[in-house]
């Protein structure tokens, strides 16, 4: 780059009219030997380039990855998590239902077992039971007969009243 071109380019730079390519050209130029008058300007451009060497420490990536992996999962993952929770709830309910049913079955067996092996004995027992019912029934019938007394009495009274009414007419 000759001095005229350099001067023009620098003027453009100070008035913010240079393109990125032209600015790179200036940076490239000032990397080399420069006239004494431009020493300070060269420092500025070297400074810009030197700043690019500043980097974060090596362990940065690993630290970030560690943090983002342990962070709560995103939306799609949390949806699966919720589904899994619902499924787990259903499993618990179904399992509990099954065990309760089993317990109920054990506590109240549905099958009737034979109580007697000898038919004669069974017949006697049946007869005894039927006699007991019969006796109780008769006893109750006798007692119920007393209620009839009331009915008859009520009918009599009603009959009288009807008679009275007829007389009144």
């Amino acid at each position: 780059m000759d001095s005229l071109e350099l001067t023009n380019l620098l003027e453009k730079y100070w008035s913010c009219e240079t393109s990125l390519e032209e600015e790179q050209k200036l940076k490239d130029y000032f990397r080399g030997e420069v006239p004494e008058a431009l020493k300070e300007t060269a420092e500025l451009f070297r400074y810009f380039e030197q700043q690019q060497n500043m980097t974060v420490k090596q362990s940065f990536d690993a630290e970030v990855k560690k943090k983002i992996v342990t962070k709560p999962a995103g939306r799609s993952a949390s949806m699966y998590f919720n589904l899994a929770r619902i499924a787990a709830g259903l499993v618990v309910v179904v399992a509990a239902g099954y065990f309760v049913r089993e317990e109920v079955r054990k506590a109240y067996p549905t099958q009737n077992e034979d109580t007697f092996s000898d038919p004669k004995l069974a017949l006697e027992e049946t007869k005894k039971a039927l006699m007991m019912i019969s006796n109780s029934f008769n006893k109750a019938h006798k007692e119920a007969g007393k209620i009839n007394l009331f009915n008859e009495a009520e009918e009599k009274i009603q009959g009288k009243r009807v008679g009275e009414k007829k007389v009144n007419i």
Binding site: V56, K57, F60, E63, V64, K67, I68, K71, G74, R75
Partner: peptide, 17 residues
């Protein structure tokens, strides 16, 4: 500056959707 960049990374990751 490092703390801020780390916060930026985490912010971007959490808002990636």
């Amino acid at each position: 500056a490092r703390d801020v960049v780390q916060d930026v990374m985490i912010k971007v990751w959490n808002g990636r959707e």
